[in-house]
């Protein structure tokens, strides 16, 4: 039973990929510049292990803080838009316009405002996470079934009860989609934010590796970023399956 579960997980595929990397690169004499041998990548990872761990934690921290603040603001904005039409009409288009400005364009300003601190990365992460969460919250809250609303009204429900017992639970699966998108974007935001200047973090290490053409280091960082993203996304998926498993009908 346990072996079956293991076979059905992505683990065997990962092993196959690692083996292919390990065997194919020397066999085809691929230049290290394009794809270094797996052994070199592992050796490099071991040589920078403490820096890598510190960078991992730093970027994780920036992502998580940025994500949570962005999620809180995004959900609040989505609820506000759903509640008051005038707010949606007046403010929402501005958000859309702001969203279409690439985050890179804001980077310098954010660094001037917040300095080379954790805060500037958090701000970029939350800025990216905010928008999809706000949009999905708004859309989810608009999905409440009119017939269920009529039923609630016939029970004499107040607007507060209507929101807490019907609209919000209806919206949660859609909000969850926004949260997952927001989480990936927050990670991207934290990494890009580090490019504008810092000393610790996966983004900083990426930039350094790029400058010094440390190709195995780049691969170490790509894999580490991938691991971090998978960890965050997997955690969100776990929470979703446990608490928000229903779907709109």
């Amino acid at each position: 039973m346990k072996r079956d579960a293991l076979l059905r997980s992505p683990l065997p595929m990962l092993v196959v990929l690692a083996l292919a990397w390990w065997l194919v690169v020397p066999a085809l004499k691929i230049e290290a510049r394009y794809l270094p041998p797996l052994g070199a990548v592992i050796a490099d990872a071991r040589s920078v292990w403490p820096d890598l761990l510190a960078g991992f934690w730093r970027t994780l921290l920036e992502t998580v803080i940025g994500f949570f603040i962005g999620a809180a603001l995004g959900i609040a904005a989505g609820i506000g838009f759903a509640q008051w039409r005038w707010l949606e009409r007046g403010v929402f288009p501005i958000f859309v316009a702001l969203q279409s400005v690439p985050v890179i364009a804001f980077g310098a300003i954010v660094v001037i405002w917040f300095g080379n601190t954790l805060a500037s990365k958090v701000v970029i992460a939350l800025y990216l996470a905010f928008f999809p969460i706000a949009v999905n919250t708004l859309r989810g809250l608009q999905e409440a079934d009119p017939q269920r609303m009529a039923l609630m009204r016939s029970f004499g429900a107040s607007s507060r009860q209507m929101f807490l017992k019907l609209s919000l639970p209806t919206a949660l699966p859609t909000i969850m989609i926004g949260l997952k998108i927001g989480l990936s974007l927050a990670l991207a935001g934290a990494i890009v934010g580090e490019w504008f200047g810092d000393t610790v973090g996966l983004g900083v290490m990426l930039l350094q590796a790029l400058y010094f053409e440390q190709v195995p280091r780049l691969w170490v960082l790509i894999l580490t970023c991938g691991g971090l993203g998978t960890l965050l996304y997997g955690g969100a998926g776990l929470i979703e399956r446990r608490f928000i498993w229903w779907r709109a009908e």
């Binding site: 079934d145 017939q147 269920r148 009529a150 039923l151 016939s154 017992k165 019907l166 639970p169 949660l172 229903w246 779907r247 009908e249």
Partner: peptide
């Protein structure tokens, strides 16, 4: 009035 529409309208959660 206790009102029951055509669909059961149960809340899936």
């Amino acid at each position: 009035v206790a009102f029951m529409p055509q669909r059961d309208l149960l809340f899936p959660w």
